[in-house]
C-alpha cells in the first residue's frame, strides 16, 4: 500500500515537473480540442461497460466512482 502511494506521488511529481517546462499555448490546442481527444469521449458507452464489468468482476471504478446502483454483488 505504501509503495503504491509513493509511486503515485512520484508520478504526480513527474506530471507537475513536465507541466512546469512544457506549457501548451492556447494557439497550440487545435488537436487537444478535438472531441476524440476528450478523456471520456463516449460517456454512455463507458457507463454501459463499467456496469457490465462491475457485474462480472471484483473490481470497479478508477476512471470515476464505480459500481453502485446494482444488487448484483
Amino acid at each position: 500500500m505504501l509503495r503504491l502511494i509513493s509511486r503515485s506521488l512520484l508520478l504526480l511529481a513527474i506530471c507537475a515537473g513536465l507541466s512546469a517546462c512544457a506549457g501548451v499555448k492556447p494557439w497550440e490546442r487545435d488537436l487537444l480540442a478535438k472531441p476524440q481527444m476528450e478523456l471520456d469521449p463516449h460517456p454512455l458507452q463507458s457507463a454501459f461497460d463499467d456496469h457490465i464489468y462491475f457485474s462480472k468482476e471484483a473490481s470497479s471504478g478508477g476512471r470515476g466512482f464505480g459500481g453502485g446502483g446494482c444488487g448484483c454483488n
Partner: peptide, 16 residues
C-alpha cells in the same frame, strides 16, 4: 490530476 503534456498528449492520474 489531469495534465496537458504537449500539443499531442494529455494524461490523467486518479487515486481512489
Amino acid at each position: 490530476v489531469t495534465q496537458v503534456i504537449n500539443r499531442r498528449w494529455i494524461t490523467q492520474l486518479n487515486f481512489g
